[in-house]
Amino acid sequence: MSEVTTQPRVVATDAALALIREIQADHPEILFHQSGGCCDGSSPMCYPADDYIVGDRDVKLGEIGGVPVYISESQFDVWKHTQLIIDVVPGRGGMFSLDNGREKRFLTRSRLFSGGEACPLPGR
């Protein structure tokens, strides 16, 4: 019998956690929303928590560094079999994202959950 392991739906690299702390020095309360495409591709967007209204149909994937990460319900349906890995690469952040102007930006990588991994969703 194979053992089932529980994995978080979203994790962050050390570089992403460091950039989160850098941003929090200017904006203590932040959140992430995984973009669905268009202008900034599929970048995770970082916003001041009081400037972004989380929608009724947004899904909370979890937290990274104590910061909540949301995704739209339609995007979640596409990504529900993957673990999102928030990382950092050189470049300019999304136009409205708090990583903009820091010469590094957040980037989402992904990994498919395997058959032996459970992937619970907080609040769902």
Rank of each mutant, 00 (worst) to 15 (best):
A16G: 06
Y47I: 03
V88Q: 06
I71Y: 01
I71W: 06
A25Q: 05
D51Y: 03
T6D: 07
W79E: 06
S74V: 08
L84R: 02
Q83E: 11
G101W: 03
P28T: 00
S97A: 07
P90S: 10
M45Y: 05
T5R: 14
V89N: 09
R102F: 13
D99G: 06
G41P: 04
S114D: 15
T108G: 04
L17E: 13
H33R: 12
D50E: 15
H33S: 13
D14G: 08
I53Q: 09
A18S: 06
L107V: 01
T82R: 12
M45I: 02
M95D: 15
L98C: 04
V54I: 15
G116Y: 02
R109E: 12
G55H: 07
I23V: 11
S2V: 11
Q83T: 12
P28G: 02
R21C: 14
V10G: 03
V67M: 11
C38S: 15
Y47H: 02
T5L: 10
R105P: 12
G101E: 15
D50Y: 11
S97H: 04
I30F: 09
T82D: 13
G36T: 03
I85E: 11
I53W: 10
Q24I: 12
S110Q: 04
V67H: 01
Y52H: 03
Q34A: 14
L107M: 02
D99A: 12
F76I: 02
G37Q: 02
D87F: 04
S35P: 00
R102D: 05
G94M: 02
G115R: 08
E29M: 06
I71G: 13
R102Q: 05
K80L: 06
G62Y: 15
S114K: 09
F32S: 00
G94L: 00
S43R: 05
L31G: 13
V54C: 07
V78M: 15
G36D: 04
L31K: 08
I20Q: 04
L19I: 12
R9K: 05
V4L: 08
D56F: 13
F106C: 11
E103D: 15
F32P: 04
